[in-house]
Amino acid sequence: MKLGRLWNSLANPKRIPRVFSIILGVILLTGFLIPMALNDNQLYPRPVPQEQINQGNPLAPYDRGGEVLKEPGIVKSQYPQNEPNLGKITSYLTPIAISVKNSTIYYGTSIYSSPGGLIDEILYYTRGFDTVLESTILIMAFVIASWVALNFTMRREDE
């Protein structure tokens, strides 16, 4: 096939998603050949498996220690000097969670548990700008979709 025909076939917008998907599929498949090299310096230090469960800790395996607003729990961050209060709400539990915690030792592995304020704290305190941007993407998508829906259906002016 001539190169010119190849370029011409790329000029059809309908073919572009297919071409892109094929290239993406090939690259993802080559990913299986890449040797895994993970950097685990940033992982949170975790206790030995089953250690907290054997101690009868109701928050096992998610207990990170700490006391709300007084003593930070075990949390790592990239720039600790920017976040002096990091980890101080990691051990926060709602009143309902505290009552459940006192009644059973399987609170940490039950389906309704959340490991304290940990996820919220990491998201909103250390990477707060990410959440702002994510919701900006969502709201822009809603703006576009609702504008198109309104102006091409209800407020449509026939020409």
Binding site: S77, Q78, Y79, N82, E83, Y125, T126, R127, G128, F129, D130
Partner: peptide, 8 residues
């Protein structure tokens, strides 16, 4: 630098 938590 403008430090915003972990995002600098």
């Amino acid at each position: 630098q403008i430090p915003l938590g972990d995002i600098v």
